[in-house]
């Protein structure tokens, strides 16, 4: 792979033209210092935007993701400074103020001399990607936003590429390569991928076919798990209604989980901490409302990836999952003295 080297001490003009070239050719810019690391056989680095929940409730997502990526040769370097992206992309035409937060985060990426940023949380991914797309397509709005952020040293130029970790795994590592690196194949584990909304919709920012996505399936197959198909994998879980309308979320989550269980799923795999909360933690309320319901473990895709790559079980932080997945994993001899 051809890499572009961006010297941090180079002339500004050189830096800019390199950036433009990278934009044209879609080549990643590798900061000079990173290149030195690479030459020493160290991993490819990419800027990483965690978002709020990854640092708190979804620590199990973050830890397992960083460890898995690292074992696959990617170092996700957390932005030195970042702020909440706003979690939802503002949908009204005149509401520029709510685009400030995500764009500010993209400035942080440029400050690190990077032109790509990877996310884990589906909501952050969607918000950053849509805000980015908005200013890339509307120069006037970009200028206005830059004016509003007059205190920033760097003006945003719209040239950062927002990625989800799944895209990197698919396009830059490759599922075949992952399959080769799997040490503990998740044989016999019947998992149902759950996409939710924001990884796929609206289609212009989705990472896969919005109706029949396969990216999670392909990843899970490469870990050796048995993938279960079910019709609710792209149906909304109720999202933030979990704050003020728990009943709605409970109903939705129940339908999704029941559909997967009916198809034989033993666990659900997802990539969004809010979906995670609604499908995992809300099982408490689901059980109260639907007596026939039996708990089903909910995984972040990185937890299963880490496990299959043979990483220390500790990075999976299974103790943070609401429904304890360890009994299931033990029953499949995937953890506990194998």
């Amino acid at each position: 792979m051809l890499l572009l080297v961006l010297s941090s001490i180079g002339e500004k003009a050189v830096r800019n033209s390199t950036k433009e070239f990278a934009q044209l050719t879609h080549l990643p810019i590798i900061p000079f210092t990173h290149l030195l690391d690479l030459m020493k056989g160290v991993k490819m680095k990419i800027s990483y935007f965690p978002g709020c929940t990854l640092k708190t409730m979804a620590k199990n997502f973050e830890d397992s993701a960083l460890a898995s990526a690292s074992s696959l040769g990617i170092e996700m370097v957390e932005l030195q400074r970042w702020n909440c992206c706003g979690t939802v992309y503002s949908l009204t035409s005149d509401d520029l103020i709510h685009q400030l937060a995500p764009i500010r985060d993209l400035i942080r990426v440029e400050e690190q001399k990077d032109n790509r940023v990877v996310t884990l949380c589906s909501m952050c991914y969607n918000t950053l990607k849509r805000a980015n797309k908005l200013v890339q397509e509307d120069k006037e709005k970009l200028d206005k936003l830059n004016d509003l952020m007059y205190r920033e040293d760097v003006k945003y130029d719209g040239k950062v590429k927002v990625l989800h970790l799944l895209e990197i795994l698919k396009n830059e590592i490759g599922f075949e390569q992952i399959a080769r690196k799997v040490k503990i194949p998740l044989k016999g584990l019947k998992v149902a991928p759950y996409y939710g909304c924001l990884l796929l919709r609206p289609p212009e920012v989705g990472i896969d076919d919005p109706e029949n996505p396969t990216i999670l399936e392909n990843l899970l197959e490469s870990t050796g798990a048995e993938v279960i198909d079910y019709p609710y994998k792209t149906e909304c879980c109720g999202s933030y209604n979990t704050v003020a309308n728990v009943d709605l979320v409970v109903e939705r989550a129940y339908n999704i989980l029941r559909s997967a269980i009916n198809q034989g799923a033993e666990a659900i795999v997802l990539s969004c901490p809010l979906c995670g909360f609604n499908l995992d933690n809300r099982q408490k309320e689901i059980k109260e409302k639907f007596s026939d319901f039996k708990n089903i473990p909910i995984f972040y895709f990185t937890q299963l990836l880490a496990l299959s790559l043979g990483l220390d079980e500790k990075v999976c932080r299974f103790e943070l999952n609401f429904v304890d997945p360890r009994p299931l994993l033990e029953s499949k001899h995937l953890i506990g003295g194998v």
């Binding site: 978002g51 709020c52 929940t53 708190t56 409730m57 979804a58 909440c84 706003g86 979690t87 939802v88 503002s90 709510h98 949380c121 909501m123 952050c124 999202s239 933030y240 209604n241 979990t242 704050v243 003020a244 901490p273 809010l274 909360f277 933690n281």
Partner: peptide
Amino acid sequence: ETLSQVPQIALVSALRKF
């Protein structure tokens, strides 16, 4: 209780929408 229970992204988005 809800405040301490739900993830930040749920709270922030709910307040943004509601």
